[in-house]
Design a protein around this nucleic acid. Structure first.
Length: 281
DNA sequence: ATGGCAGAAGCATTCTGA
C-alpha cells in the first residue's frame, strides 16, 4: 500500500504534474497541501477519471488540504473537532484550512499543513505554536492507542539539524527553533515514527527547496515534509523515499512528494476504478 | 540587511509563503 504526501503549491496550477506523477507512482493514497482553492472549484474530475475518490477542505488563495484515495474513504473529519470542550478555540483554528483526516483501509490518515510561522519574533510564529498545541489536543482525542495511524503533511519544521543544508546558518531560526521542535514532539508524544529516518540516517535529503537564489540547483534544501506512522505499523514499513525529481518539472512546486510503502492488504476491495486491480497478482 | 521566486486576486500591485 503506497501512501504519499505532497505540498503542491496550488492544485490547479500543478494539476498535470500531479496526475502525471499519480500515473507513474500509482499511490493508493495521496495527501495534498496548499491546494489554494475553494471546495467548489477543486478539480475533482481528473482524479476521479484515474479511479480516485477525493475529499478536500480548502479556502480562497491560501492553505487548503485534500486526500485522494483509490480505496474507500470513511469517517471524514475536516478541521479540528467542534463538538468538544474546546469548541471555541477549534472554530478559531479552523479559519485556516490546514487539517483533514479520514479512515482508509483500516488506517487513520491525518493530513496537515502546519503554519509556516514567518520568523520567530512574529505573531505568526505564536500562531504556529498555538496551532501545534491545538493539534496535540486533537490527536489526544482522536487517536486511540491501538489505532493504525498515518500522520502526514508539510510540517514546516526540520526535526533536527541534519534536516537542513546549512544548520550553522539556520539552527534556532524559523523551522529550526527549539520551541517549534518541542511543540512538534509534544504532538508526536513518542507514539509515532519518522518513516524517512528508518531508512536514511544521514544528512543531505531534502523535501523543500526555496524558489529563490537558485536553491534547487545548489541543492540548498530542507526536510520539512514528513510521514509519521504509529509504532504498531513499524513492522509493515517497507520503504520511504523523497521523489525529488518532481522538483525538476517545468514550473514545479517548491516541495517534492514523500512516499512510503506499507505492507498491508487491501481490506476494502471496492476499488473505485473498478478495473482489473482486484485480479492482479 | 535586503531581495530574490512563485501563486492568487484581479488588472497594478499587494499579500503570503518558507
Amino acid at each position: 500500500m503506497l501512501i504519499a504526501t505532497w505540498n503542491v503549491n496550488s492544485v490547479r496550477t500543478r494539476l498535470s504534474q500531479i496526475t502525471n506523477w499519480i500515473n507513474d507512482a500509482n499511490p493508493d493514497i495521496l495527501c495534498l497541501q496548499e491546494t489554494k482553492v475553494t471546495d467548489d472549484s477543486f478539480p475533482m474530475k481528473p482524479f476521479e477519471e484515474l479511479g480516485y475518490e477525493v475529499i478536500k477542505y480548502g479556502q480562497k488563495s491560501y492553505n487548503g488540504v485534500a486526500i485522494i484515495s483509490k480505496l474507500k474513504i470513511e469517517n471524514v473529519k475536516k478541521g479540528f473537532s467542534q463538538d468538544n470542550k474546546e469548541k471555541k478555540i477549534s472554530v478559531e483554528f479552523n479559519e485556516q484550512k490546514r487539517l483533514i483526516a479520514a479512515d482508509i483501509n483500516g488506517l487513520k490518515i491525518i493530513n496537515v499543513y502546519v503554519p509556516n510561522g514567518s520568523s520567530i519574533d512574529s505573531d505568526k510564529f505564536d500562531y504556529k505554536i498555538k496551532w501545534l498545541n491545538h493539534l496535540s489536543s486533537f490527536l489526544d482525542e482522536e487517536v486511540k492507542d491501538d489505532d493504525f495511524v498515518c500522520f502526514v503533511g508539510d510540517f514546516n519544521i526540520a526535526p533536527s539539524e541534519i534536516d537542513i543544508h546549512a544548520p550553522k546558518k539556520y539552527e534556532g531560526g524559523i523551522m529550526a527553533s527549539k520551541k517549534e521542535r518541542e511543540a512538534l514532539n509534544n504532538v508526536l508524544k513518542g507514539r509515532f515514527i519518522d518513516s524517512f529516518r528508518i531508512f536514511e540516517k544521514t544528512t543531505g535529503h531534502w523535501s523543500w527547496w526555496d524558489y529563490r537564489n537558485n536553491a534547487y540547483e545548489l541543492n540548498k534544501g530542507w526536510r520539512i515534509d514528513h510521514i509519521y506512522i504509529s509504532k504498531n505499523l513499524s513492522s509493515k514499513l517497507k520503504s520511504c523515499v523523497i521523489e525529488r525529481n518532481q522538483r525538476e518539472n517545468l514550473q514545479p512546486s517548491d516541495h517534492a512528494p514523500v512516499l512510503i510503502n506499507l505492507e498491508i492488504d487491501n481490506q476494502n476491495v471496492d476499488y473505485f476504478d473498478d478495473d482489473d486491480d482486484l485480479f492482479e497478482i
